[in-house]
């Protein structure tokens, strides 16, 4: 598992940047219409045997030059089943503990201040953040690597939030393959973590906590990916965090292939093509015999 940490320094020139190495791609840009990384959010995607998670908007106690509170972005990625390694079970447990702590922090404090904020603030002083951000990427490599190791160790030490005793039982909608719900809807957080667990185990799909979404209509711009989808509405500034769970329709491509006509076409077209090819080959052979 790779872990990356982004934050900003106090001087205005030290804008948001990764303190150590940066992820290979800015994959979260795909979701920029649906979530603002300045506010609490979580993105998780598994595709082609690789999972990616972003947790952003984690508030720090530090402030910048105009007195605005600074936040952190954590980016994690890994492979569910890399050959020759044994650490994936631990990675899965770490990410699940991290996600459950983050959801709990947001529930306890509207800005998300809590265990995760304290953990990240304790890793690195304000002066150290400024020093790392002021240096070129090629400088202070040992200190950057050491910070990344400290970060990974600190994250691995996180324990998951014990699941609450549910009196009612979750809405059956949350058992559907694709759903959207408010973050505080009954059973939504548990269903979200269960879906995240599947993704971390290698199942293709998505699980997101989005802060610029208020209804199912808003997620029509969500990138279409195969597999299940779970969306939690953060609800801090936009939308209702208590919105009841709602099932989402399947992917357009899946709808088309599951239609009876499409299924019929899918079966007949290859058969007809094969027959035509055989006929042409036969005719060619016959013509060859005649000459």
């Amino acid at each position: 598992m790779h872990v990356y940490l982004r934050t900003r320094g106090a001087p205005r020139k030290l804008d948001y940047a990764f303190l150590g190495a940066a992820p290979g791609s800015r994959w979260w840009d795909t979701y920029s219409e649906l979530t603002a990384t300045e506010r609490p959010c979580l993105l998780a995607v598994t595709s082609k045997d690789r999972w990616r998670v972003l947790i952003s908007g984690v508030p720090s106690a530090r402030t910048d030059s105009v007195g605005t509170l600074v936040y952190y972005t954590l980016v994690l990625d890994g492979s569910p089943c890399p050959s020759g390694t044994t650490g994936t079970g631990q990675d899965r447990a770490t990410v699940l503990a991290l996600a459950s702590r983050w959801l709990d922090d947001i529930t306890r404090h509207p800005e998300g201040r809590g265990v995760l904020s304290e953990l990240l603030d304790s890793l690195c002083s304000s002066a150290e953040v400024d020093r790392l951000l002021a240096a070129r990427n090629s400088e202070l490599t040992a200190e950057r690597a050491e910070l990344t190791t400290r970060l990974a160790t600190a994250l691995a030490s996180l324990s998951p939030v014990p699941s609450a005793q549910d009196t009612g039982g979750p809405s059956p909608v949350l058992l559907a393959e694709r759903w959207i719900a408010g973050r505080t809807a009954p059973g939504a957080d548990a269903a979200f973590l269960a879906r995240l667990s599947s993704l971390l185990s290698g199942e293709d799909g998505q699980a997101h906590l989005l802060n610029l979404v208020s209804s199912a209509e808003d997620i029509t711009t969500l990138p279409e990916k195969s597999g299940p989808l779970a969306v939690l509405i953060e609800g801090g500034m936009v939308g209702d965090s208590a919105m009841p769970a709602e099932a989402l329709p399947g992917l357009t491509s899946e709808v088309v292939t599951s239609a009876p006509k499409a299924r019929w076409r899918a079966a007949v077209v290859p058969t007809v093509l094969t027959a035509l090819i055989l006929l042409l080959v036969g005719l060619a052979l016959i013509a060859g015999n005649w000459t």
Binding site: D15, D29, E38, R39, V66
Partner: peptide, 11 residues
């Protein structure tokens, strides 16, 4: 506070 709007980390 004047700095109530957080600074932008992504376009």
């Amino acid at each position: 506070e004047p700095g109530v709007v957080p600074s932008t980390s992504d376009p």
